[in-house]
Design a protein around this nucleic acid. Structure first.
Lengths: 256, 256
DNA sequence: ATGTGCGAGCGTACACCATACGGAGTACGT
DNA sequence: ACGTACTCCGTATGGTGTACGCTCGCACAT
């Protein structure tokens, strides 16, 4: 059983996550040399690095460089790379206070979605975080409580409350993902959609000449003319959000 | 300018993607030794590896091992790791024929969503593919055409057709992501939700005792009792899909 | 029939990565 | 004063993608 080692790391990480809200129990002595920096600074460096470069090239070496530390010293602050990213996520979730939720259900859902949307726009690397092992930190807990408060008292079951919140958050993340994808494609290739098309059009046309794509061709052209790009993520977000909210509101109305 | 090198790789990859539909132009001579295997076999090995292990530990070395080749020989079939994954994606997209779309709009949207859902369930690694540089292959093109055909002739603009399809596909991917996350968490930790909770409950309770989470506590408990787990991805998919379809149908009706 | 040269296969090397281990130095508790 | 716990970090291990350049089998032109 690896229960011991794993549980140890998990304990330590949970303690780190909640470090500002829990009085360090019997943490005890402060022997040895003073630490050069702090856990918060390590997390801050990580966030700055991820904001700059994304998570693809995120490395402990670069975090250490930003802090003026040797690589292995970072491991005296956080248990490892994955755990550091978990701490970064929770930190970012508490960066801005959750706006108060006023108005009717639709307005409250709208406010939640736009808060998440802004967060993804400011920290696109959140979309690259492996969510299969989420670390339950204070800001994630606050977030969930806040999201649930948007659908409290509307006459649906507890489970349906959770499902509504899950649907909304999932929609925002997928919309934000499209937005990030488009920006990254343009930035990394260093060319606009138009330029890319100009270069690849000959081959694509030759290649797609056999089969024909009437709808894709027509819709693609319409999008291209309207946006001067393959898509417009902001508008896609607005359109999808309206549909999702409509669907949820209709459901709630039907339950009453 | 790196235009030359990059464009070369892109050309080669596009040619590989469309290899079955385009007669190799002046590809020319077949000198030298016969290749031990084929591009399709390389892609197939890649898919098998990804199905087995996911993309986290996906490596060219493992692909080569499955083929009985040296590592570098794989590079004579595909330009690189990213391009191989792109080829795998397109291959998987053509694995099953797209079911015909009958019935009313809601039924057609439902059929599209379930097809995507099944695909993600069979190849969860699709959710890990970096989508910021999608390779336009024949099966992706077919897919888009098929999806658009579900919303053709319903009285909305071309751009709105694209937005509806984007919304639906995004919803399915986020629902599938939750499902995969839950399964992976359980499998990798080797413990059920209940066991995990039993181990971490003491620390979490101590840690969360300061703030209180009335809604999260109540909803979490309800979910736990109903599902004997933190969530039920299949039900979340059904619930969300119904809401999204309702929202879209209401929109289309309002346009008429 | 022959030999030329293309291209498949791949060994090696390089530049990265996370992180385990152990040593050196430091500052507190006793 | 001294043990000891703790920080910092050099080094090593085992992983990654892939560039480079070698060998040699084989198809084609002669």
């Amino acid at each position: 059983m690896a229960t011991d080692g794993t549980a140890g790391t998990e304990d330590r990480t949970l303690a780190l996550l909640w470090r500002h809200r829990v009085v360090e129990a019997g943490s005890g002595s402060a022997r040895g040399p003073k630490q050069k920096t702090t856990v918060d600074a390590v997390i801050g460096s990580g966030i700055a690095l991820a904001d700059d470069e994304g998570l693809d090239t995120f490395s402990m070496r670069k975090v250490a460089e930003r802090l003026g530390l040797g690589v292995m010293s970072v491991y005296t602050y956080v248990p490892g790379r994955d755990e550091l990213i978990g701490l970064m996520v929770d930190q970012v979730m508490g960066e801005r206070p959750h706006p108060p939720l006023d108005g009717d259900l639709a307005a409250r859902l709208d406010a939640v979605a736009r808060h998440l949307w802004d967060e993804y726009r400011r920290h696109p690397w959140l979309l690259q975080v492996d969510t299969s092992r989420p670390w339950l930190g204070p800001n994630l807990a606050d977030r969930y409580e806040w999201e649930l408060s948007a659908v409290e008292g509307i006459g649906v079951s507890d489970i349906e409350m959770d499902q509504i919140v899950t649907l909304l958050a999932g929609f925002v993340s997928s919309a934000a993902r499209s937005a990030r994808d488009m920006e990254r494609t343009q930035q990394r290739s260093g060319m606009s959609d138009a330029e890319w098309w100009e270069i690849n059009a000959p081959l694509l046309e030759r290649v797609m000449s056999g089969a024909n794509y009437p709808l894709a061709g027509r819709v693609g052209q319409a999008s291209g003319e309207a946006y001067n790009a393959a898509s417009n993520p902001q508008l896609a977000f607005e359109f999808g959000l309206a549909r999702v909210i409509d669907g949820v509101v209709a459901f709630v109305r039907a339950q009453q």
